[in-house]
Amino acid sequence: MVWQAIARKEVRGLIKPRRRRAGLALVALVFVLGGYLLPTTTASPETADLAPYLTGAVTLVLPLFGLLLGYKTIVSERESGRILLLLSLPHSRLEAVFGKFLGRGGALALVVTIGVVLASALVAYPFGSLQLGVMLAYLLVTLVYGLAFVSIGMSLSTFTRSGQRATAATFGVFFVFVVLWTELRAPFRIALDYLGLAGDGLPDWALFVYGLEPGMCYSRAVRAFFAGSEQGAYLGPDAPFYLGEWVALIVLLCWVVVPVAAGYRRFEVTDL
């Protein structure tokens, strides 16, 4: 496998434009800023406090930059003809998709890691404390969440030949998942009620479906793992296991794997 060559080239090209570097630095900055501000709100902050404190910012910034990193990967290479150069060399299309995902996901993972580590240090010094295990767990969950959007962006990039359409679809996904989703709960319940499938609240299976959105999964996992929350329709004592944080984590992992895999399958069977 020579996908390393593609990933390396991808990173080299990615970090070259200053605008792109600035954007990536912004991601790390969000975490650092959180680490800087958190100690002003509480007397002896712990690493675990960072996670719920940052959820609002993270669920805005990571979808944005994840999608931005992913959505042009294939379609712009196709439109411009750079893909011909790539696939003239002995690479399979699988290596091309995998190498690009690795390069772009790796770039995002790097800045998130830098951000989380610096933020944890700021929380710990001088009055707080550092829990290394917690930091690693938080980093891991957050990385999975960010990579899910790189994956979604890349899949959008493989399903169309038109860059404009990919852009529109990306904007649509961002709008629905990040802006609109929390507002959809009520209409969803009313619609199910109309069909005679729901009463005053959503039934468990409907909660599961509604909770599949990556942001929902992420904040659920953060609340359960790092804030110790045991309340609400998802994490409360009466909720079935499939509404819990572990299943949310598995769903997040699926968001990383499934979109890019589906995109690859689509890309594999079409002419360039």
Binding site: R12, G13, K16, P17, G81, R82, L84, L85, S88
Partner: peptide, 9 residues
């Protein structure tokens, strides 16, 4: 190939 483009950066 024909119709390629190089990696600008």
């Amino acid at each position: 190939p024909e119709g390629y483009e190089v990696y600008d950066p």
